[in-house]
Amino acid sequence: MDQPTTVKPSLLVRITQFAPLRLLVLGGILFLFMGVSSGVMEKFAGQPVLATVAAAVMAGLGVAIYAAFVRLIERRPVSELSLAPLARELGIGLLIGAGLYTASVLVLMALGIYRIVGFNPVSFMVPAIGMALSSGFFEELLFRGALFRIVEEMFGSWISLVVSSLVFGLLHLLNPAATLTGAIFISIEAGVLLAAGYMVTRRLWLSIGFHVAWNYTQQGVFSGIVSGNAPVPGLIKPIIEGPDALTGGSFGLESSLVAFLFCTTAGVILLILSVRRGNVVAPFWKRRTTAS
């Protein structure tokens, strides 16, 4: 009986499918466009409505570039950006992200550290929209869609979780008033939470929702410092007085023990759900052993 023949992929196809090369190319493209998006945001800094429109357009372009790369180079459906669950998963992510930040502020209010002394006009909430869209979409496409996913293909979920979290946190040292403590905290609390959001659904929408809502609520509502960047007033006029361990100091609330506790706990819960759903990927050497 004749055995079915399999067509061996061409050398060019095998080269383009090489995981480290895909990570380098896709990551480089997304990093470049993230820089372009930041430049566009700076250009429209005094025009918040135009900045919001520009950020939305750039975010859409980032998604399109990512999807085109996956379809043309990886030659597979873009399941991590499936449109069917977009509204539900993005909505849940937005609610949880805003809820985690609000819960952290409520703890500080109960301790007398965060005090509301007034309110700005509602228009002060607009500038944060563009910032949140740009950072939320591009950073999730880059760090979870490219870095976490492709490293996971090679070394499995747990090693990828460590690698992507460390890279994500340490790159925040490039921010103006960044601190090592803040970068380490982000590596753990945000790195785990955002990667777990991807693992539990195998899509990016939940993580994008977390990221966008946290950044927006932080700046647009509570006038907080976002990851060591210059503070921008939002809706609430606060006075924040207390130890850096609780306020986060110059880095912002991400560097506080309160946010660390809430976000890390949420991330661990999602990791447990990922394990229970069988969404943990083994490293390639264990997959080969199982297959044989």
Rank of each mutant, 00 (worst) to 15 (best):
L12D: 06
L94D: 08
A67K: 10
G234I: 08
F69D: 04
E152G: 03
V281Y: 02
I272W: 14
V200L: 06
S274W: 01
S227V: 10
R76M: 08
H172S: 11
S207C: 08
S207H: 00
L30C: 05
G267H: 03
D2T: 14
R88F: 12
S255C: 07
P238K: 04
F210E: 08
I150H: 05
V163N: 00
L72I: 14
P243R: 09
S207Y: 01
L147A: 08
Y216T: 02
S134R: 13
E254R: 06
V275N: 03
D244N: 15
M131P: 03
G252D: 05
A45L: 13
V122L: 15
L32E: 02
P283R: 00
Y101K: 00
E80F: 09
M131G: 09
F44T: 12
G136A: 11
L174K: 12
A146Q: 07
L24N: 00
A84M: 10
G191P: 06
S187L: 07
G220K: 02
L206N: 00
I65H: 10
K8E: 15
G220H: 05
A230R: 15
P127M: 07
R71S: 08
A213R: 01
I116F: 11
M109Y: 09
E189T: 02
F185C: 11
L271R: 03
V107Q: 08
L86T: 11
T5N: 14
G191A: 06
T181E: 11
S82N: 15
L206V: 04
L171R: 06
A132F: 08
G267D: 09
G252L: 10
I159M: 10
P283D: 07
N175I: 05
K286A: 08
P48S: 14
A178T: 06
S227A: 13
V25L: 14
G234E: 05
F260W: 07
V162N: 06
V105I: 15
I29E: 02
V49G: 05
L100F: 11
S82E: 13
G156W: 02
P283F: 02
V268R: 07
M125P: 00
P48G: 12
L253F: 12
V192N: 00
L106T: 09
V258H: 01
R14G: 10
V122A: 15
S123E: 15
T52H: 02
I129A: 01
